[in-house]
């Protein structure tokens, strides 16, 4: 709660103490030729009031779940967000799952083959994932798989001729399955797979590095040697004894990885014309739409806090030594 308040203050100050004038940015040429339009615009958005008043009005509305009105879309930011969040959620969750599956697998392999060639190759791959600019990776992927090979459809969440499934969760893949529209589901997956993979690259590297060091630490323990000495198959040793003990640090990174995904979506959504909050926040930032930007920031901060809360709970579930106090 304290954190939310802090973020709201920070975000508000950031976007208010600006040399750029939102009225000019959004009215364009009319701003210089039509002073009345500027005045009406300022009055409509409460920009004519002193800053502290603006903030308290904003905070008061916030407590009612009202994030204010976007200066670009002329709609409540809450409604804008509700429209764009499902698209981002679908993309982000898919990429997180991909990154976790790949990263943990590679990390375990790297740790078991420590300092051998396999380990070095995985090191290069994982650090490569963390070193490649996502905007560039997205473009190269589009060029190769869409432009040259035509394996995947291009931008957007669905082909232009395909109607979205009936709205339940807003996640097209789940909604399509729920409605029994298999063709829509397949189309969604085709559109989803490339941006999700691009988005997963950075976190895949992160998970690999963390899994490797966590597993290495566990491998040194006596009980692992005992398990092996008992003649347990390596698979059992790895899954039952090592991975479980190594999971707390890996779970912790998931919270951090969430921040990376949100950063990635801004770039990836722009390139893939994905109608999510990444694209929305970029448009708002370039349009000096302070209400919208603050709304996005607050929403993301709240999700960040929730994700980390879940991580803490998971941590306690995995590691009985940690209390839930």
């Amino acid at each position: 709660m304290f954190l939310c308040l802090g973020v709201s203050v920070m975000a508000f100050v950031l976007t208010t103490v600006v040399p750029g004038d939102p009225a000019v940015a959004n009215l364009g040429d009319r701003a210089s030729s039509d002073p009345t339009a500027v005045r009406l615009y300022r009055e409509h958005f409460g920009l004519d009031k002193p800053l502290p008043v603006q903030y308290f009005v904003y905070l008061g509305n916030l407590l009612h779940g009202d994030l204010g009105e976007s200066e670009q879309s002329r709609r409540a930011v809450r409604i804008d967000l509700a429209e764009y969040i499902p698209a981002t959620a679908e993309l982000a969750i898919t990429s997180m799952v991909l990154a976790l599956l790949l990263g943990v697998t590679l990390g375990v392999i790297a740790a078991l083959r420590r300092n051998r060639l396999t380990d070095q190759v995985i090191r290069v791959v994982s650090l490569g994932g963390m070193s490649t600019p996502q905007f560039w990776l997205a473009l190269v992927a589009l060029y190769v798989f869409f432009y040259k090979l035509n394996w995947v459809p291009g931008a957007g969440r669905l082909d232009a001729i395909v109607l979205p499934p009936p709205h339940v969760t807003g996640l097209f893949s789940i909604d399509a399955l729920a409605a029994g529209q298999l063709d829509v589901f397949l189309n969604t997956v085709q559109h989803l797979i490339l941006p999700a993979c691009v988005l997963a690259a950075f976190n895949m590297g992160l998970f690999t590095r963390f899994t490797r060091s966590a597993v290495l630490e566990v491998l040194e323990n006596d009980y692992v040697r005992t398990a092996r000495a008992k003649g347990l198959p390596e698979v059992t040793v790895v899954f039952r004894h090592v991975l479980r003990a190594a999971s707390p640090p890996i779970v912790t990174v998931v919270g951090l990885a969430f921040g990376n995904v949100m950063t990635g979506t801004v770039l990836v959504e722009n390139i893939f014309s994905w109608p999510g909050i990444g694209q929305y926040s970029y448009r708002s930032a370039t349009g000096l739409d302070l209400t919208a930007i603050v709304g996005v920031m607050l929403f993301v901060a709240i999700v960040y806090i929730l994700v980390n809360m879940v991580v803490d709970i998971l941590y306690a579930v995995i590691d009985p030594r940690v209390g839930l106090a």
Binding site: L3, V7, M10, A11, L14, T15, V17, V18, P19, G20, G259, N260, M262, T263, V266, L267, S281, Y282, A285, T286, L288, I293, V296, M297, V300, A301, Y304, I305
Partner: peptide, 17 residues
């Protein structure tokens, strides 16, 4: 930390130009 780096950086740049 709670706000993704690029969102914050974007807001700053958009604010300052």
């Amino acid at each position: 930390f709670a706000v993704p780096t690029i969102l914050l950086a974007m807001a700053v740049v958009a604010a300052l130009g």
